[in-house]
Design a protein around this nucleic acid. Sequence first.
DNA 1: CCAAAAGTGTTGAAGTTACACCCATGC
DNA 2: GCATGGGTGTAACTTCAACACTTTTGG
Lengths: 269, 269
Amino acid sequence: MSLCVIFTLSKYIYNPSFVHNNLKKIGSELNPNVSVDCVIFGFDLEKLTVLVIDRGEISAENGPRLALPGNLIYDNENLDQAASRVLDELTGLKDIYLEQVGAFGDPFRIHKESDREWLKSIRAQPDARVITVAYFSLVKIEDYQPHPSSFAKNAEWTPVNDITELAFDHFEILQAAKEKLKQKIKIQPIGFNLLPEKFTLSQLHRLYESILDKPLDKRNFRRKIQKLNILSNLKEKQRGVPHKPSSLYEFNEEKYQELTQMGFDNFGF
Amino acid sequence: MSLCVIFTLSKYIYNPSFVHNNLKKIGSELNPNVSVDCVIFGFDLEKLTVLVIDRGEISAENGPRLALPGNLIYDNENLDQAASRVLDELTGLKDIYLEQVGAFGDPFRIHKESDREWLKSIRAQPDARVITVAYFSLVKIEDYQPHPSSFAKNAEWTPVNDITELAFDHFEILQAAKEKLKQKIKIQPIGFNLLPEKFTLSQLHRLYESILDKPLDKRNFRRKIQKLNILSNLKEKQRGVPHKPSSLYEFNEEKYQELTQMGFDNFGF
DNA sequence: CCAAAAGTGTTGAAGTTACACCCATGC
DNA sequence: GCATGGGTGTAACTTCAACACTTTTGG
């Protein structure tokens, strides 16, 4: 049963011929030595989450069940394209915010027997030295809800802070991605990629707190974010909440473009 | 003649068997698909410089003569080690500040005929798809002066801002490295790796201006850097200068460790 | 009427910018 | 004595952190 799951999953995400046939990458070869892995962040309006793959019970030793989605690259695609492809294959989403985190891959990164076994089931050359280029991406959690019936049923949104181990060196990659996101959000308002089109200031506030992993003063946060002038106040309120309803806002791309062209240093968080 | 130069140079920096024999990496193989390239920064007390390789006239078309030092990785070394090795092979220096910039490598990065020819002369599989992991390193310029008689005679310190083109995608890599350095120096005092042990505040000032690529107010700079409390004022002055001699300082590692452990956000530049 | 989150201003401290003159040395 | 870069203080302004109460809704 668990083998079956792995097979189905790997067929969807990892199997070269599947992708080959479906994306019509005729004439291109999988490069045995270079892969991409994606740290796909979401935000459930409470906590920062990551989309991880449950590999099932893959060995007697019970190594970590969870892994980041990833795959070898094709020789005719660039790294960004490979990352987009992995994301698309898993979620069906296109045009998603993606940013490179960096390259990883010790020669001996596969020290868990469970990882070795898994590779045998999904790679033509399971023993090849692989270096992996990590990306993080920001997805509106509403845009992708794993369906229990789909091939990718083993993908799940998991709160970042609940994750304590991952396959291979994926935990290290996750930490690096969190750190990169933390730095990046101080400089650019990329957080909007994680929120619905319409959102409240409190949601934005919680998002910043989750990413920066520290409490931010409510009044100071609101003042600061509003001073940036990149929010439009839709004249619309929440409905059906058991407390004073909040105004809804949306991110204003044009105002942001003005700002960046004039060049501003940071968001000061 | 120019061919000869290339051969000698490539033998030193790029030839697998040379490295193989000399570093006794018996049993390990060059990975045909993954390389590292190093952006080696120096500071001549006036301007930020980079150590680049002059490939000589390598084609009738006269593509860019300059390239970053780099090489394929071995399957038994990790990326950081590969970068250290490249740096060591070129300069003989060890224990140098190194930081990963990221992974690069479009499938069609080799669009210049000159690059293609050069690869034929130094690679066993010149047509393999290669992705390269870029590093930047900070070297005290006094620690490495290229000798006209050495194998690496074609390495030269070149002012960063004088470089307008490089082989392959190396110019893009250089830009990314500059940007990374710029961000990094706002957060950590890594600039000291570029200065002599003893330096003046004016030299430090010029270094920050070179890296941040903008003028900084003299008095404000001095106040800010001194408030950090990571400099020791050696009670020693410059000699032989035709103006008021400056005090010499050194970077105080211990004080810096104290600071970082207490956690401080940035240098505010 | 109660619980829950929304929304709102002020003050003191710290940090940032801009700016001009005298000093010590070698030649 | 002159050219060169070294070295120093202040005032106006901006930003930041800390902090508590009233409002609106659903149940």
